[in-house]
Every structure is written in structure tokens, then in C-alpha cells.
């Protein structure tokens, strides 16, 4: 499926309370897992990881 540029393809977070909504959400147990999940998803989705600075990463296709 072709995604529109700028759309959020996935959300990876440490804080379950902070996120909700349409994009697939991945919960990580710690920083290390967060980073690893983000790297894998970035490679799989060929998209870029952005840090929202609150323990949440979003994967965005540009």
C-alpha cells in the first residue's frame, strides 16, 4: 500500500498512557528495546524515525 508522504506508519513508545489512535502502536519495555524496535521498523518500512522526546518515537514516510 502506498502511503502519503508525511503519514505516520507506526508509533513506538515506553508510555502506554501517552498514545492512542490509528497508527499501529508498539510498546517497548525499556530504552534499548525502544531503540531497537525503531531501527527495525525504520528498515522494514523504509521510513524515518523521529523522536518526540517523551519516550515516544514515530516512524514517518517522507
Amino acid at each position: 500500500m502506498e502511503h502519503e508522504a508525511g503519514s505516520i506508519l507506526a508509533v513506538i513508545t515506553l508510555n502506554k498512557e501517552l498514545v492512542d489512535g490509528g497508527a499501529p502502536i508498539f510498546f517497548a519495555r525499556d530504552e534499548q528495546e525502544l531503540e531497537r524496535l525503531a531501527l527495525y521498523l525504520s528498515k522494514i518500512l523504509k521510513a524515518m524515525v523521529h523522536d518526540l522526546d517523551n519516550g515516544t518515537y514515530v516512524v514517518v514516510r517522507h
Binding site: E35, A38, L39, S42, M48, V49, H50, D51, D53, Y57, V58
Partner: peptide, 20 residues
């Protein structure tokens, strides 16, 4: 600056992965 890549004072892009 945090996750944001800067060229001098110019804001370029938010890079999430620490390794990158």
C-alpha cells in the same frame, strides 16, 4: 539539539535513532 539536527543555528530534521 535534542533529536534535532542542526547546521550551525539552522534546524534541519528530527533524527530519532541515537545510533544514526
Amino acid at each position: 539539539q535534542g533529536p534535532i539536527l542542526m547546521v550551525d543555528e539552522i534546524n534541519m530534521v528530527n533524527v530519532g535513532l541515537k545510533e544514526r
